[in-house]
Design a protein around this nucleic acid. Sequence first.
DNA 1: GTCTATAGGTAGATAGAC
DNA 2: GTCTATCTACCTATAGAC
Lengths: 188, 188
Amino acid sequence: MMQKKATLNAQPRSDNRLNLLDAAARRFCSRSYYGKSMRDIASDVGIKAGSIYYCFESKKELLIAVQKEGIRRITSLVSTAIATANTPWDRLQAAMISNLQEILSGNDYAQVVIRELPRIDDPRRRRLIDARNKYDLIFIKPIKDLEIGSEIKCYQIRFLIMGAMNWSPMWFKSDGQSPEEIAKGFLN
Amino acid sequence: MMQKKATLNAQPRSDNRLNLLDAAARRFCSRSYYGKSMRDIASDVGIKAGSIYYCFESKKELLIAVQKEGIRRITSLVSTAIATANTPWDRLQAAMISNLQEILSGNDYAQVVIRELPRIDDPRRRRLIDARNKYDLIFIKPIKDLEIGSEIKCYQIRFLIMGAMNWSPMWFKSDGQSPEEIAKGFLN
DNA sequence: GTCTATAGGTAGATAGAC
DNA sequence: GTCTATCTACCTATAGAC
């Protein structure tokens, strides 16, 4: 699908696939998947709509790619953060901080996973949901290790924490509390 | 805009304005404001797209009406629930239970407020946001009355609780925990 | 790798009949 | 109140030039 070498008469733009993903994430986030056109996304990276189809075979493919990348990024960041902490409490806090950092970073990938995944209708959605569920499970172990209640209780706590985090973009102000402060505030 | 009497040759449908609001709420919820057409909404109530414009002068007007009604409903329900409880703790719990009942009821109005309000671009959005902020404030008083921390702490708790509630439609299963159980679970 | 041109479909909205 | 018919605009996607 992608060629290794640019032809001589092509303009010297570095890999537009990534630029397109960034633009799509931004656009899908601000007005939903259905609310922004291929023309909008293309114009953000300085090309025409038809050219997107060199990298992505359809609009839905573009959405799936954004979501796949979004899950990959946040999973990677949070896993790393957890690995560097020693106690269950620190692991939970580290996971929350890096999760919030990614969600509130303004790159919009995570939000497209969060907000658009439940309503896309596509066979590949199943795999994405599995990947997101797997991501959500990262949080359950540190909570269980806190040993503060039954298994049901642990899941309730996880729903509480993850819901609050997933919702935070709605009220977050970049001149207010930092992700660290928000995470610590949630944990008392 | 609306007439009081139906003409004789009109079909005997009772006020379609409400039916249209219900259908719009459902559709805007499932595929976003941009993802569903006036034709889709019209067909849900058994009329043609052009006929919607007898009740609503534009698609955006229809969205605004859904959101206005959504805020009105949940404000009314939660205010009433709070008024029937006696202690701060009971008031907070009553507010959470009725908030969750409305959000998880399946009528979709609340979710259109929650999910679509941040991204519509319209002068009237300001008023809706004010109304929703006023609604959010309903929760702050019971939390403050609990006297468990500083004002900042109270707002952190509110963000935690409201975020978790607003997010609950994503994982709620109608054969699982009830809104009461979820609210009590969040409150420990 | 990006362009232009365009096919083929659907969108929101309006006008006028009934 | 709802219909049909229609306008204009925009959409996704493709084909072929460069």
